[in-house]
Design a protein around this nucleic acid. Sequence first.
RNA 1: GCGCCUCUAGCUCAACGGCAGAGCAACGGACUCUUAAUCCGCAGGUUCUGGGUUCGAAUCCCAGGGGGCGCACCA
Length: 468
Amino acid sequence: MTAPYRYEVTRSAASLHDEFGGLEPGTESGTTASVAGRVMLRRVQGKLAFATLQDGSGRIQLFAPAATTPRFEEFCALSIGDWVGVTGEVITTRRGELSVAVADWVLLAATRRSFPDKWHGLADVDTRYRQRYVDLWASDDARAVALARSRVLVLIRRWLDERHFVEVETPVFHPIPGGATARPFTTHHDALDLDLYLRIAPELYLKRLVVGGMERVYEIARVFRNEGLSPRHNPEFTMLELYQAYADYTDMMALVEELVVHLATTLCGTTALTYDGRPLDLAPPWRRVTMVALIEQYTGVLVDVAMPVDELRRICGDHGVHVEAGWGPGKLVLELYEKTTEPHLWEPVFVCDYPKEVSPLARDHREAPGMVERFEVVVAGRELGNAFSELTDPDEQRRRFEEQAVLRGGGDEEAMAVDADYLRALEYGLPPTGGLGVGIDRLVMLLTGTTAIRDVILFPTLRPEQEA
RNA sequence: GCGCCUCUAGCUCAACGGCAGAGCAACGGACUCUUAAUCCGCAGGUUCUGGGUUCGAAUCCCAGGGGGCGCACCA
């Protein structure tokens, strides 16, 4: 039998439950519906068969008496996992289960492989990640998270659109990797005989667009970083980056706080979440505190990037923080923060004012010397977003790039390279601009209560299977 | 990259030095209101791979592979 080329579906399982959910047991609604999906359960009782059909919206029972079901024996022989299309009257059974009484049905696709245990489902995480096409049917959670991620993206786009942000797409191939400190993937364009890098951040292109007069731009950008994997790191992940002309980092604080609260209340109905077994309240206003004040809170030591390097190295050593030769005071302070302080943060907090040395694209702090106007927003001990008052001065940007180039020459593969075209763009004038980056995967983790980034990425990076 | 844990039937799991098993799925049969349907029957294995120890290895040891977690790296 040849599988049909199409099937005219008139109703989803969820819409049937929505419309007919209140029917008394034993009701014939008089309404005919065509549904399609996968047979997930099957109960055959001689001259009467029941099946549970699952579609993209949910489940609906099929009611199939031998007397009225075409090709009844074939229907009874359906395998769990087979795709079928069914047309029939919407009824409730004597026990009150909403069902479609099969008046006509067709096999849309047969499964040749056994589906996972209908009760236990798929437990092996390796199989879940590798065979997401099975996981999505077998695991309610997998489906729910995938849908939630889509919702998050829709809501972000709508929210930004309402605020007159313009979505753009910038290159994934970068001749010079920039916009973040990270090791890139490399590739090669044959026709141009050109080595290219997969982007580690869209930042420098987006700011070029602000130079070009796009005052509010954003990109939901897949970025690629050649790093280790962990429950919080996948080599390719998704960042929201946005830039707003005439704004500074305090505007970005207000923006990201409002956005995340909007997402939580829309998606979860509340800002009072539970994450990793702990209560987590996203209710604004979020705490705003400088990095050095936080370090002092957690270590008792008041550090300053103006302190002698040796003293900072000693303080790091006192707190068991591994340091490397050549690290300047800014890097030492950052390292001290990341090792001693960041993991302890739980409720949302804006960690403000970073050392200039580790922030080559951020503008000098208007008050604190040696610091820049930058914050990271940390939630549940994880960095969720990063923002600054953008550095607009081409001369200062050139000096920062050159400092990075020295580090790069010294073997730091993550240091930035000089991007001459970006400097040229700045020479045309970048207005005061606030920029923000938000890790979408981590945001979805937060909103769905998942603690593994692989659970919010449909096809996470894995080693290939060995050939069977 | 390093350390710890893990890998048994399509799926979920037992057996932990002595004949490799169960439930679900599949297959055959019974059954007209089930919903993890039930009942009867049948079949299903390179115990991740390769070595080793042993009378005997899924089990212990070594090496390799996949995965998880931690560390390192890293927004």
